[in-house]
Design a protein around this nucleic acid. Structure first.
Lengths: 256, 256
DNA sequence: CGCTAGCTTGACACAGGTCAAAGGCTGTGG
DNA sequence: CCACAGCCTTTGACCTGTGTCAAGCTAGCG
């Protein structure tokens, strides 16, 4: 992973982060300013690069600015299961526990840009003994807790997909989830969005074989529920897909 | 759910809770005393009863004293997926977020006894800004964070099981996990333990059909890897099961 | 241009689901 | 104290969703 100073305006590059956090809980002007300041130091990783290895030391907390990554684990015979897809705006490396038990690697799926964010909350969702955060005028604790809460919800959705849904339902469900998440950060154009994933990645996420992912996507296309070309997806019949997949988008807190 | 005062000695009834928390982080004498005091007010639920309904208000934080429960979600067509099995000593109703997003019901699988524990941390896994002093409400902050961390680890294991393991592997993996967790709370007798679950529950946990669970358990018995009679399980070849299931027990923090 | 990674297709195999029925248990009430 | 009822387990026959293998195909890229 390489680091460099960022010459560009921070505001533009932080859009996804700002939108996501703001959706979780409205950001104050002071908080916006504070986040903008994070944009001046970014790191990048190429596709396939591990941002955090399995047994390694805890990752530095950061936000994904652009590109997609995933949390995954490998079985000893090489099988892979992806726990979650990480999109721009997502936080990685934060945890409730200073020394996390969870053995999961974080791997870039495309070229990824990150910005360090440990100055926000010390890297812990509630840091066990964060000396300064109690006095810190900019509190992101609520945001990070809600972020963790949303992540958990998405993980539970994933368990249901894997345990009780067919390949067809699973695929539809995943597409709806991605669309919802991308809309949140302003990266969906109506029902159209970019999904820079190979079918192998989709297979390892959905618990299917590559071949079957291919056939399932074809079926969805044939039935005119979606369109796909290159890495672009269009949900032609979002409502019908939601019925098929029994999809219910996460409920974000309205006013707290 | 019915409530009553508990005439019995608290110490005996809290054993599982004490053992589990102590394994996560050694309990001080003061903490032991504090926990004992929780044992004087217990609630019970019968098998099948919802401890927390899906959309309902957040559950009161509590510990399971005896009996088994689960977190689950139902699909609109009636399919059920169990996220986790809840054993004596487990905490339920705690969350990082005051108003949790996660839509999961908690349901008793057997007769269950619980004790309210909101006096411990206010029901929240202590937030960032909380003074981590040995002061009252957050006295158990470290324990509850580690508890949450362990739960997350178990959930990731579950995702791998459902996504990438065969019925045979899944079943072996689950049995090893249960054995590990029951050993932690002193409810395993060597390689023998009680598992008060119907095959329907196992099916909904493992993402399989009842019939296939039955056949898979039979296969494990036929191959002399396990013994089962009634609700008792014996792991005859734990090491071999671990190889089959690619099982690695969670790593508990050693000395913090 | 040729290579390589990714996509697509067909033929076939098999894990796991479904359906249906027969046996156990166990608690309960006559 | 027996007998019934109901839940759970077990079994067999059969079906199907998904995996595997193997071969082309396509397109971006050095």
């Amino acid at each position: 992973m390489s680091t460099r100073a960022n010459p560009k305006s921070a505001a533009s590059i932080m859009v996804a982060v700002l939108r996501r956090l703001n959706a979780l809980k409205p950001l104050s002007p002071a908080q916006l300013q504070r986040l903008d300041a994070l944009g001046d130091r970014i790191e990048t990783a190429v596709a396939g690069e591990a941002l955090q290895s399995d047994g390694g030391s805890p990752m530095r907390p950061s936000f994904i600015l652009s590109g997609w990554a995933c949390r995954q684990r490998l079985l000893s015979d090489g099988r892979r299961q992806i726990f979650s897809l990480l999109l721009p705006g997502d936080a990685v490396g934060f945890c409730v526990e200073p020394s996390p038990l969870s053995s999961a690697a974080v791997v870039a799926l495309t070229k990824v840009a990150l910005t360090t964010a440990d100055s926000l909350t010390g890297g812990l969702i509630p840091p066990a003994s964060s000396p300064s955060s109690a006095q810190d005028p900019w509190q992101f604790a609520d945001h990070m807790r809600r972020s963790a809460s949303l992540e958990e919800e998405l993980l539970l959705d994933h368990v249901v997909r894997l345990g009780r849904q067919t390949a067809y339902e699973r695929t539809a469900h995943m597409l709806l989830e991605l669309h919802w998440r991308l809309s949140l950060i302003g990266q969906a154009d109506g029902h159209r969005f970019a999904m820079p994933l190979t079918q192998e990645v989709l297979a390892d996420f959905l618990g299917l074989s590559i071949v079957h992912v291919n056939r399932t996507l074809q079926q969805l296309r044939r039935e005119r529920l979606i369109e796909m070309s290159g890495s672009h997806v269009v949900l032609l019949e979002a409502a019908q897909l939601a019925v098929i997949a029994d999809y219910q988008p996460p409920v974000l807190p309205q006013t707290w």
